[in-house]
Design a protein around this nucleic acid. Structure first.
Lengths: 186, 186
DNA sequence: TCACCTTGTGCAACTAGTTGCATAAACCGT
DNA sequence: ACGGTTTATGCAACTAGTTGCACAAGGTGA
């Protein structure tokens, strides 16, 4: 039940159309909550039906016609409620770690290349986050909003740092391994 | 499409019944791939129908009767194929970071307590991982399987370390904040 | 021996997210 | 005025995961 709240947050930051939201979910918000345009349109419909947002009445709504949405007081209240509510962390699911564990029983053949690829992807993401940090969070700003958003970005940076380090370490281990086929021979 | 492979891995490590699998998913495997017993039973059915596993013929299969499963050669082959195949990382979704971002627009009221709770949960998890490391990975073991499994555990430890550090930092920031209500006044 | 608890298996319905495609307007060159 | 691309909105079907409940067998104490 987080997508509607992600959308409310985005719309409070700036009223947008479905497609604009989609683009913003590909950038900043999507770094920790991704969504496709189909999800977003569906959810916009529900949010409007529930009276949490409304379409800005600027243009007549026709298909293929841009339609912006803004958050109503009820929407802001719901977001505040959700933000403050206690929530249990969702269980993680990580395919790469699963594959490594599988490799312990069926062999590491073929895995190394993909580890290397993932390392590259995480390095790229880390570089992107660091650029954003330099651009949007120069030293000396200390508004509350800035500090909170910076904190979120730091989480992204630290997570990507973790992954690059862990993957490097994993690849180093791989280099020392006897290499190839199943470790539990038939 | 990872749950079946998680199950295959678990069954290769040790043939088990549905409930045994469920328990193992609550411990080790569940640390990076969680599943409920209903998911597991359903998937066992599919895997058996697909000829990747079979029920051990020990006891007559009746409802409420323990039924163990083992992996067939086709299952092992499928797991090896999947492990070696290139896969893109799934987008992350993290509710806590989303809530922090929401807090930047609707205010931080109520959030701090839950941050503190999450910190405790992560500290506990970290301690558990470290116990496992001491128990199962004493210095000086260097079989391939051990090294791979240790690597996976290290990922868990480092991730929990990241979270505890980040949450501590977040709480420290919160302590300095002007406190309470919306930062974008109406 | 009967009521109750634990262990073990399983179905059905629901929620969330993904994939593939349809449609419509606007803009753009020819 | 026409055909092609881009922008924008949306439906339908599917996959994966969650929740709530049902049912059977075996043990345990009253």
């Amino acid at each position: 039940m987080s997508l509607p709240h992600a959308i409310l947050t985005a719309l409070l930051e700036k009223p947008s159309s479905g497609l604009e939201l989609t683009r913003r979910f590909d950038r900043s918000i999507g770094y920790f909550w991704s969504a496709t345009h189909q999800q977003i349109y569906r959810e916009l419909g529900k949010l409007e039906a529930d009276g949490l947002i409304r379409a800005l009445p600027s243009e007549q709504p026709a298909r293929g016609q841009k339609k912006s949405h803004e958050v109503l007081p009820a929407g802001r209240a719901e977001l505040a409620r959700w933000t403050a509510a206690s929530q249990d962390p969702k269980p993680h699911r990580d395919t790469l770690l699963l594959r490594l564990r599988a490799a312990a029983v069926v062999g590491t053949a073929g895995l190394e290349a993909d580890l290397r690829r993932h390392l590259q992807l995480h390095e790229r993401q880390l570089a992107e986050y660091q650029e954003i940090e330099q651009r949007d969070f120069p030293p000396g700003r200390d508004g509350t909003e800035d500090r909170l958003r910076h904190l979120v970005l730091r989480a992204g940076i630290d997570l990507e740092t973790f992954w690059t380090q862990w993957l490097s370490r994993a690849l180093a281990e791989f280099a020392e391994l006897p290499d190839g086929e199943p470790t539990t021979p038939a």
